[in-house]
Design a protein around this nucleic acid. Sequence first.
DNA 1: GAGATTCTGGAGTGTCAACTCCAATCCTGA
DNA 2: TCAGGATTGGAGTTGACACTCCAGAATCTC
Lengths: 209, 209
Amino acid sequence: MTDGVAAAPRKLTAKGRATRARIVEAAAELVFAHGVARTGIDDVRRRAGVSASQLYHYFTDKDDLVRAVIAHQTDGILDAQQPLLDHLDSFEALERWRDLLVDLQEQRHCQGGCPIGSIAAELADDDPEARADLAAGFERWEAPIRAGLARMRDRGDLRPDTDTDALALALLAALQGGLVLTQTRRSAEPLRTALDAMIAHIRASAARP
Amino acid sequence: MTDGVAAAPRKLTAKGRATRARIVEAAAELVFAHGVARTGIDDVRRRAGVSASQLYHYFTDKDDLVRAVIAHQTDGILDAQQPLLDHLDSFEALERWRDLLVDLQEQRHCQGGCPIGSIAAELADDDPEARADLAAGFERWEAPIRAGLARMRDRGDLRPDTDTDALALALLAALQGGLVLTQTRRSAEPLRTALDAMIAHIRASAARP
DNA sequence: GAGATTCTGGAGTGTCAACTCCAATCCTGA
DNA sequence: TCAGGATTGGAGTTGACACTCCAGAATCTC
């Protein structure tokens, strides 16, 4: 109450850590599938195989759990896109990355948007703490994209005057928007088209066309 | 129950139409600000200045009201972007349209994403009827963009082999993604950057560069 | 102007979800 | 071995929310 820090249990046994992780994992899956509001504590409880008191032993309230979910999903995104994400410094790499994202959506039958983008659309206006966490999550995602494009420019693949920061931001936006449309239309086409267009636009900044 | 059509009152008095419109308007504002799940029937009721029985006189249930909100917001988007939207057939028009969208977000202090995109992110996976309505809404939005770009190509402003349908889709995706990031970051920069990038990409297809 | 229909008010009802409490275990470290 | 804290179970409690009901007022139709 007095401090802004989420009530973190002082010490956590290996067992405790495992239980906590199981809860976050279950919550993340349900939130991804149905959103925050439609995910009940009891659903999480059942899926994780824990009792109510355990859940409230590890998290002060639902908001606290949601913040843990945001962190978990951000980690998951970065993990799932490694090692590609850390080497987005060639057109081939960008295209492989695009293929990975499109394939993933097709495997999911275009259900579920972005693990953090969907939460952002739901909570950004109402939960300032969640918004800050989500902004930080996007930043962690954008940073390697930005770094890769900057390396391409520094290496001479892109013209020296290329605004690689803007390109990275626009690429992430195309990805987010592509996911929303893909989810609504139940077709991966919008995602592929949006990413293709943005990669083509980056190619237009190539030093030697 | 038996038919798929939403229970539409047979006849509506002018007064009845006004009351119904007031309810939809109030619901749309609240849904835009807080999302579907966080918008209570009672909140709508109070804001519209009607009693519970009136609300259920005009709508069978909350889902029915939400569908009316989706239709209302789609109309609102198209209205707000007229007459620009119907004449997106020059680079100047595209840029004026971009400015309109960016200015609008700044006026809102970057709160609230897309009036239908946010609903899509929330409901697409769980409510098939809402998903279909939202897909139709996006289509109504995309159509004039597509038409404008096609006119540019047919007129010779864009090269004859330009895939204007893909460009229109990518532009809408950039807009959606830009809005999500803008909402999260509380800055209009992502929206402007995303739209700028996509317009620059369209310009790359110009017949006389 | 009479009768039918639409429209409205407000007090309910039942359900469900978030959260609490307390006592019973399990585990860890000295 | 044996405290003491970490972990767990399960039955409450509380409030909010979607939705209902019925009777009366306003309005339209003929």
